[in-house]
Design a protein around this nucleic acid. Structure first.
Lengths: 211, 211, 211, 211
DNA sequence: CATGAATGAGCATTCATTCAT
DNA sequence: GATGAATGAATGCTCATTCAT
């Protein structure tokens, strides 16, 4: 509205890319808006308002807010999945894997948060850090799947792998929250405590994890 | 429209107090509506529609939906806090307390869920179990506080009590979710696994918990 | 908008009736708008704009434009049906009935047209006189039914009553159109020609009508 | 997007004329769309979507949907007028002409209807058969004119030729409707009944038609 | 206090039309 | 010419909120 510098309006030169760039602009705007006011209550108008585009333009790129959500989630998944795969391939044993997975998640979370802040999400608005964001959701799902399949594969009939995964996820979520609220944001610290706690926890539930 | 005789919560008897009872009626309706369609998407209209009251009357008692949310949360807090206090007073040691707290939370969760289902929340709608209910939120906060103060009081400088609480909360949340998705809902099972996992976990972080 | 005299806004006195009167106002406005620009292309906003009411108020009275259409049609039906019934009861024979029915229809049409003109339908806009009006449609249906059942009852297996009815309706429609375009509007003339033509027509098709 | 080779009505061969052929393509598409969803509710977008052309191209050929309508009507007129002229030239007397005119109209109607059905107009959608098509309108107008001038020329001061034409048109319209609703569609039957009815009718109005 | 009609801003979405390329 | 992305006005409709009674 005021900032005419970033406008992609016709007439400014490189056109071919501008078209594809608008999609990016909308996604970026959506990211900011979701971070600021939550996915649920954000409206399509909130998103395009963040943009130099006109109301109708949104619908040239997405059919609805839900599609933006999906696109954002897929983006995150596609960025995070390889990292997680690498982590797994590199892990010599359970403990290492758990540690690396926690670390990957907390790192991602930190990055996301920094982006969100830069994009205008006032720290105040996030009572608890914003998790109802498509990116977070996607990554969390990713982690959950990885753990799930890891435990399943480990074929540990001694304990309920679903509950164990749930525990890991719960710890990750809450630790992530806490980690972001503290300054400076300490990824390694969170990783260490989470790993220690979780690994000790499951070794208490099933002794075969005491290696 | 013209007949004022039948208004005013027909069928409740005492007239004098009936007026104050409207507040109760609105809260009750809000509970049902939140359970059925989620706090976020419920509208003031949805709430008053559940009521014998007129649209405008809502605003005699609450300034907005958010105030109803707050009131509902406070109600839950005030009902749940004593239970938790009793649990604490009765607990001979850490382990017992943790177990009792998990149990209290999972029990409450089960009750809430059953109420929600009875009130019309289709099992389907709860992708993840309905947590966006002011009551749940309040109780969770309550538990968090209890744990927090418990650990602080225990004065365990050996570990970061905030993180430990976060772990307990995370486990509680995710286990609760999982518990409700399984049938029959097994409060004791969830309590046992959660306690074992969590207690073993913290004993790994700080040996002074191995008593 | 400019005319504050006719406003039904709160604060002008008689209130109880005003509420019911708004429904009338909307129907009246819809009548005018439909007449002026056709039922199909008229929008809800066009209707309320004709009114002193606010956009949302429309939906206190009707769920959509279609409901207004239905209401308008029902109004017409309920006003016209008795007239037609009386006509039929009074008719000693076919010829009289046909004449009276044509007359009733053309009279109604004239009334409607005059109302429409008074309500702002510029004569210009109606290329062919506006028939896509719920009232006209309803009345025409009424007439069609009356004729249909009349012929059926007369049990004239000698000719195809459906076609005969269609002829009567077609003549009525086109004559109505023509009648309204001429000045002064001559109901009796149209009735005479239509009746003569139609009655001679059917007597040519089936001799049993030559009485 | 980038591939301009495949554009321009792929598969039609000659390139030079292809450009002018776009007009044709649009008209054809409009025909189909109008038949399928009615003239009123069809949008320019619906039309170009049926085409290999881009949105903007539409405006190189027509200023708006209304112009397409007009063009389509003119096309019909120009195709139908000669047929009607021939009919007239060949008719030895009034009766023959009337019959031939009815027949021409009903035939055209049947063709149009079959085209419409083939083009996707669900039988259901046509509450009353699809008349809101520019072609139908044009042809009807054509017939009306022919009859009008015929009667005028016959110089029959004994009756009101405008009304007589109106009667013929009304009968044609309603019979057409009815004819299409019955199966199999019986053009000759409709023609016979309509002619009989109409001719007897006018002979009752003015005896000079009894020849 | 209770009422419920009225309000008007707001939302998702569609569409005719323009225009830089 | 042809293109198709951008535009922004318009539409149907919902909702929180007000206020005369």
């Amino acid at each position: 509205m005021g900032d005419t510098e970033t406008k992609q309006r016709p007439g400014d030169g490189r056109r071919a890319q501008a078209k594809a760039a608008n999609r990016e602009a909308i996604l970026e705007a959506a990211r900011a808006v979701f971070a600021r006011m939550g996915m649920e209550s954000a409206t399509v108008r909130d998103i395009i308002r963040e943009t130099d585009l006109a109301a109708g333009t949104f619908y040239n790129y997405f059919k609805s807010k839900e599609e933006v959500v999906k696109a954002l989630a897929e983006l995150s998944t596609s960025r995070f999945r390889p990292r997680l795969a690498k982590v797994r391939a590199a892990a010599p044993d359970v403990k290492s894997y758990i540690r690396a997975a926690f670390h990957a998640y907390f790192s991602f979370l930190k990055d996301e948060n920094e982006t969100a802040l830069r994009l205008g999400a006032s720290q105040m608005k996030l009572a608890a850090v914003r998790y109802d964001t498509p990116e977070m959701d996607a990554v969390l799902t990713e982690v959950r799947c990885a753990l799930d399949s890891f435990f399943d594969e480990a074929d540990s009939p001694h304990f309920d792998t679903e509950y164990i995964t749930a525990a890991a996820v719960g710890i990750a979520l809450e630790f992530g929250d806490l980690m972001l609220r503290r300054h400076p944001v300490d990824v390694d610290g969170a990783t260490r405590v989470a790993s220690e706690l979780f690994l000790s926890g499951i070794s208490g539930v099933d002794c075969c994890f005491q290696d």
